[in-house]
């Protein structure tokens, strides 16, 4: 068991119910032909603005959302072909920490039960052993035993996030999907959570899909980064390469919007509108309406992902010159 994830040409389509008085159902492609590989023990950052399909991508990898096209290979096994009981052993190996941990927790369960439930379900562990293990898991994520008897609403956002992490770690997963794990946390808790993730990963060797809109956090934890826009992959490659020399105009716009202390930002980035489903260009490059590099070809024909050298892929007809 090595724990390598390969995602090939993954698409996820949501079918929206027809609105009153309308006949046809509307389709929305939330993830469109995305491919990547995550080697065992590695971390891939998924970045992009809200609604771009990051969460959907994570859920699809975990088989929590039906996949429309493409393959999800876990150690060579295509998960999209498995159903029910055949999938169960894989589910244990892959855990999700939700974007909003409060919604995912049963408000009537104490922290003790939230963390120890998977121990019971996965390992059939006895009650006393569970409590001991739960306390140990909580300690690993920097919480003390006093939270064991509390309910989710009695915890701060940062504490809830760490309880969710402890629960996810309970089954000793090989892959952790973290959806915006630090977005609601203050600087101190974010530093602790990011360091914690690194230490846990070094210690336990799991792979991580780190979903975030915070490029600074991603740059800290992810070896590789994939940039999504409107469900499409714009660029992916080693994080340092992307940050030092973004090749896609959208990656460059994202980086330009990161606040730089003591410098201020008087102007907005290249974008002045927030794209939404249905507003994207229907032919050509989907980023076209917002792109400041667009040329006539961009309106007509959609760029396909091309290697710029090594592991650096970009979907753009006119990639920016990388910095040496």
């Amino acid at each position: 068991m090595t724990g390598e994830l390969r995602v090939e040409h993954l698409s996820v389509e949501y079918v929206k119910r027809p609105r009153l008085g309308h006949k046809e159902e509307r389709r929305h492609i939330a993830v469109n032909d995305v491919s990547f590989a995550l080697p065992s023990g590695g971390t891939l950052g998924i970045v992009g603005e809200s609604g771009c399909g990051k969460t959907t991508l994570g859920h699809a990898v975990l088989q929590m959302t039906p996949v429309s096209r493409g393959r999800i290979l876990w150690d060579g096994t295509d998960l999209t072909e498995l159903r029910g009981a055949a999938l169960r052993p894989f589910r244990r190996q892959m855990q999700l920490v939700f974007q909003d941990p409060f919604e995912a927790m049963n408000p009537r369960m104490t922290v003790d039960r939230i963390v120890s439930e998977p121990l019971h379900l996965a390992f059939g562990m006895a009650r006393s052993a569970r409590r001991y293990k739960a306390a140990e898991l909580l300690q690993q994520v920097g919480l003390d035993e006093t939270v064991l008897s509390r309910y989710p609403r009695q915890l701060s956002g940062g504490q809830r996030q760490r309880v969710a992490l402890a629960r996810a770690l309970a089954t000793e997963p090989r892959l952790l999907v973290l959806d915006e794990p630090t977005s609601g946390l203050d600087a101190s808790l974010q530093a602790r959570t990011l360091n914690l993730l690194r230490d846990l990963q070094a210690d336990k060797g799991f792979s991580t899909l780190f979903i975030s809109h915070d490029l600074s956090a991603v740059s800290y934890v992810a070896h590789r980064t994939l940039v999504l826009f409107g469900g499409h992959m714009m660029e992916q490659g080693p994080t340092a390469t992307l940050i030092r020399g973004p090749a896609h105009p959208y990656t460059a716009a994202l980086l330009a919007a990161v606040p730089v202390p003591a410098q201020g930002r008087a102007t907005t980035s290249a974008q002045n509108a927030i794209p939404r489903a249905g507003q994207f260009a229907s032919t050509g490059c989907i980023y076209c309406p917002w792109c400041n590099q667009a040329q006539s070809r961009c309106h007509l024909d959609a760029p396909i992902a091309t290697a710029l050298g090594g592991e650096h892929l970009v979907a753009c007809h006119y990639p920016l010159p990388g910095k040496p």
């Binding site: 603005e49 809200s50 609601g184 809109h213 915070d214 919007a257 606040p259 974008q271 927030i274």
Partner: peptide, 9 residues
């Protein structure tokens, strides 16, 4: 809760 681009806006 917003991404950097919207935040900047």
């Amino acid at each position: 809760a917003l991404d950097v681009v919207v935040q900047a806006q």
